[in-house]
């Protein structure tokens, strides 16, 4: 039974990639369309701003974002379809293994990318930040591609070291934190791009209009901050839960194991990001770079440390 379910989960994962690729195309087409529309929309927007009066009825909480275009609607529908298949792939893998589906690299990637998609859908519903569409679906396609091709291992039982309730909570929260950091990275990346274009006007034509359609830099900055503080709180919990588990399994809560070192580095980088937000000269672009560096460290900790570094956390399942 197990090998069959295992295969079903893998086939589902391949289908998920195909659907996300279509979502990616939809979102990209939408960006193109948005870029053309931006040119025509600019003039009326200015008039509307000038016409607002202070005695007007209570203003909307947020200026209502532009309506999603056909491409974005298709992208969103496909993303939701992909997510349902994705969820099924994760559940089937869990049933095949008879345990939580996050105990090796393949499973971390499979479940982690689902969490990224969930956070993405939540954020895009609230902010209509359409540029997240191609960035996040693209990122998830790459992650799942590497996972299925490079990290796939058949279901095997848990080694004694992982037989703990902490596996459920510590790893799940780490993956969730990663999802928040990932979306924050996408937002910060867009912020850096927008600020760069604002300063240099190096991009021309369609690319320039895509960037021009982005929300103001300050808005991106605030959004990245809000996502990052959630990620940071979850990461703090991950670090502590990891320490408690280490105390339970190895007799010491902190031993500067490679994974512990990188978890600590990531925590400090994001702590620096939060401090940068309150430091003159470090708000805006510079702190956005810290968010990018932080996520690069997260990916390094996930991929490189798991596979190439020796240590107590060698749970990739790869040989």
């Amino acid at each position: 039974m197990t090998p069959l379910l295992d295969q079903i989960s893998l086939i589902l994962a391949y289908s998920v990639i195909a659907v996300y690729v279509c979502a990616f195309i939809g979102y990209t087409l939408d960006l193109g369309a948005r870029a053309s529309a931006a040119v025509q929309a600019e003039a009326p927007a200015l008039v509307a701003a000038a016409g607002a009066t202070m005695l007007a009825p209570p203003p909307q909480l947020e200026t209502s974002p532009p309506r999603a275009g056909r491409g974005a609607r298709a992208g969103f529908a496909l993303a939701i379809l992909g997510m349902s298949l994705h969820l099924a792939a994760v559940i089937v893998r869990g049933v095949a293994a008879g345990r939580v589906p996050w105990a090796n690299m393949f499973e971390f990637s499979l479940t982690g990318s689902l969490l990224i998609m969930i956070v993405f859908v939540f954020v895009i519903r609230r902010t209509r930040l359409m540029i997240l569409g191609p960035i996040v679906t693209g990122l998830v396609v790459i992650l799942l591609g590497i996972a299925t091709v490079g990290f796939y291992v058949p279901v095997v039982p848990l080694p004694p070291a992982l037989q703990s309730a902490w596996l459920v909570i510590h790893v799940l929260v780490a993956l969730l934190a990663t999802a928040f950091f990932g979306i924050a990275f996408a937002v910060s990346g867009s912020q850096i791009l927008a600020a760069w274009q604002e300063k240099t006007h190096r991009l021309r034509g369609r690319a320039a209009r895509v960037v021009a359609a982005l929300p103001p830099v300050e808005k991106l900055d605030r959004l990245a901050y809000r996502l990052t503080i959630v990620g940071f709180t979850l990461w703090t919990f991950t670090l502590m839960a990891g320490a408690i588990w280490a105390g339970r399994a190895w007799g010491r809560y902190w031993g500067w194991d490679t994974k512990e070192v990188w978890t600590f580095i990531i925590w400090v980088v994001y702590a620096a990001y939060i401090h940068a937000k309150a430091t003159r000269g470090w708000t805006g672009n510079r702190s956005a770079w810290l968010s990018v560096i932080g996520f690069a460290a997260v990916m390094f900790n996930f991929a490189v440390v798991n596979i190439f570094f020796s240590g107590l956390h060698s749970y990739s399942g790869l040989k």
Binding site: G255, T258, F264, V268, A271, A272, H275, T279, W282, G311
Partner: peptide, 25 residues
């Protein structure tokens, strides 16, 4: 600003411990 610099230094300073084997571990 100093606190921020020290935080960044702390992150950077922790890196070599993961690249070279450590006596403790």
């Amino acid at each position: 600003r100093t606190a921020l610099m020290l935080l960044l230094l702390l992150a950077l300073g922790a890196v070599p411990g993961s690249l070279f084997p450590q006596r403790s571990a």
